[in-house]
């Protein structure tokens, strides 16, 4: 990353380290937060996701890996509500949320980042966080009568996020003028502003150089230990996955082919075949 952003990165790790939000939900009784049951999604006859079941507990960190086209992003879309599954159900905190629209799931605590970033080009970094802070709280009619001015509480929350993610120096810059690595951070910060109980991170390090990758890995880890949310992490960089997650789920051609702790799963011959094209 740029020299500026690297300086920033050191700051952000410090900002997170050792702090822990009160009432963070990590390991909260270890109950199930998200339960995907036999979800199937087909596009024009191609099953992108086929009969997939995944469970994520409160505060649990799960890696979701698999070769290109395995159906990881499609599964994320089904969980976040962007797509409706053809079959199967999604349960979240004990309720079936299949028919919930995206924004309702977001307000219920499912936040996500996107593989192809979905930032708001005309807004600054701070405005990104502000709009997220407002949107995940209130409905549209409330927003209609809401003046633009920031309330002190909002300002405080947004400033705190800006600082935690080390974005102070670029806080008032339009995102369209920021380098990729910083944009990925902004997307992550925006997602975390929604105070999620479950974060879906879709390839947060894709397209980044090694230093940016290390930085975002550190930020993810720190954010998780700070807020204690559960996380599903899609990532091609297996080294990164192994540093962050508690266990992994491997998908291939729309199906889950293995799951468990990193070492065991990676030793599985079927997984190696999926990745390398032959049994190693």
């Amino acid at each position: 990353m740029s020299s500026e952003a690297t300086r920033v990165s050191a700051g952000s790790e410090l900002a997170f380290r050792g702090s822990r939000v009160q009432g963070a939900t990590m390991g909260e009784g270890g109950g199930t937060l998200l339960s995907v049951r036999s979800v199937t999604k087909t596009f024009d006859g191609i099953s992108a996701v086929q009969d997939v079941s995944v469970e994520v507990g409160h505060g649990e960190l799960v890696g979701l890996v698999g070769p290109n086209g395995a159906g990881k992003t499609t599964l994320f879309d089904c969980i976040s509500g962007r797509l409706r599954p053809d079959r199967g159900h999604v349960f979240y905190e004990g309720s079936r949320i299949d028919h919930w629209p995206v924004h309702r799931r977001a307000r219920a605590g499912i936040a996500r980042t996107f593989q192809r970033m979905e930032l708001f080009e005309e807004l600054t970094v701070r405005e990104h966080l502000l709009v997220a802070d407002r949107a995940h709280r209130g409905g549209v009619l409330g927003a209609l009568v809401h003046r633009g001015q920031q309330r002190p509480a909002e300002r405080q929350r947004v400033d705190a996020m800006v600082e935690l993610f080390g974005l102070t120096e670029v806080a008032d810059t339009l995102v369209s003028a920021l380098p990729l690595g910083t944009c990925r951070l902004v997307e992550l910060a925006r997602a975390m502003t929604c105070e999620p109980k479950l974060l879906l991170a879709d390839e947060p390090s894709s397209g980044l150089g090694e230093r940016d990758r290390d930085h975002i890995t550190a930020v993810l880890r720190d954010a998780q230990s700070h807020w204690g949310m559960a996380m599903l992490l899609v990532e091609h960089d297996l080294a990164m996955v192994s540093q962050v997650v508690d266990r992994i789920v491997v998908m291939h051609l729309g199906r889950v082919i293995a799951s468990g702790d990193y070492q065991t799963v990676m030793a599985d011959p079927e997984v190696r075949r999926a990745y390398l094209g032959h049994a190693a």
Binding site: R82, V131, A135, R190
Partner: peptide
């Protein structure tokens, strides 16, 4: 106001706006 910022968000990315809870 807030609606204005929702609209700016939606202009930039509808998917992103929905994902932070904008209806």
């Amino acid at each position: 106001g807030t609606i204005g910022s929702y609209l700016a968000a939606m202009r930039g990315s509808p998917a992103g706006a929905a994902a932070i809870g904008v209806n």
